[in-house]
Amino acid sequence: MSNKAVINTDKAPAAIGPYSQAIKAGNTVYFSGQIPLDPGTMELVSEDFETQARQVFKNLSAVCEEASGSLKDIVKLNLYLVDLAQFAIVNQVMEEFFSAPFPARAAVGVKALPKGSQVEAEAVMILGD
């Protein structure tokens, strides 16, 4: 008997490969990467970086809610950017969605992301803290 549960919501983009939006194991939720797809159309919301970053956090929030949590329950956030010059913008957008104490975070520059996205985020959330 496993205490592992699949988290899935139609309020965030469907998985575009062999993975789940998130997996809950005990009181910990492990999120797959979210890119700025519109959940309804499965297309990028915009070519604009700031708009993409905002959608990534909206998608992440929708999966949090499906797992009975919220962004404030995220303890670790990994960001992937195709252009690290956008670092200041992603920080500003992040402050719209998170408040202190902020999660631990890494921001990594990458060559490319799925669907031509400019930003992706994955997270770990602890429930019941």
Rank of each mutant, 00 (worst) to 15 (best):
I35C: 02
P36F: 03
A22S: 07
Y19L: 08
N8M: 07
D73R: 03
E66D: 11
S46Y: 04
Q21A: 09
V29H: 09
G69M: 12
F31M: 06
D73V: 01
A62R: 05
D48Q: 11
L77K: 09
P13L: 08
K72P: 00
Y19I: 08
I89C: 06
P13M: 11
T9M: 09
V75F: 10
G33Y: 14
K72E: 12
Q86H: 14
C64Q: 05
V75T: 15
S32C: 13
K58T: 05
R54Q: 02
P18A: 15
V29I: 08
P36G: 04
K11Q: 13
I23H: 07
P13R: 10
G17S: 11
V63P: 00
A12Q: 11
L71V: 05
S32P: 07
D38L: 02
D83T: 00
K24R: 15
K11W: 06
S68T: 12
D83H: 02
V82C: 07
K11P: 05
Q21P: 09
S46W: 04
L60H: 07
G17R: 10
P18H: 15
N78S: 14
A12I: 06
R54G: 00
L71C: 06
P18S: 12
I23D: 14
A62Q: 01
T28I: 08
V75L: 09
A85N: 15
D38M: 09
G69K: 12
F31E: 03
V56H: 01
L77G: 04
A12H: 06
I74W: 04
I74R: 04
P13A: 14
L81I: 02
E66K: 11
F49K: 01
L44Y: 09
A22L: 11
T41N: 07
E65C: 02
L71K: 08
Q52Y: 00
I23Y: 10
I89R: 03
D48L: 04
Y80F: 14
N8L: 10
S46T: 01
N59C: 09
Q21E: 09
D83C: 01
Y30L: 14
E65I: 11
F49G: 00
G40F: 05
F49Y: 13
F49T: 01
A88S: 13
V56I: 07
A25F: 09
V82K: 03
D10K: 14
G26I: 03
V45G: 04
G33R: 14
A22G: 12
L79G: 06
T41R: 13
T41D: 10
A88R: 13
G26C: 08
I23R: 13
S32D: 13
D73Q: 06
S32R: 11
K58W: 02
G69C: 10
D10N: 15
I23E: 15
S70T: 14
D73L: 06
A15L: 08
V63H: 00
N27L: 04
A25P: 01
K11E: 14
Y30V: 05
L79M: 12
T51V: 13
I23K: 14
L77M: 12
S32M: 08
Y19T: 08
V29F: 09
N8P: 01
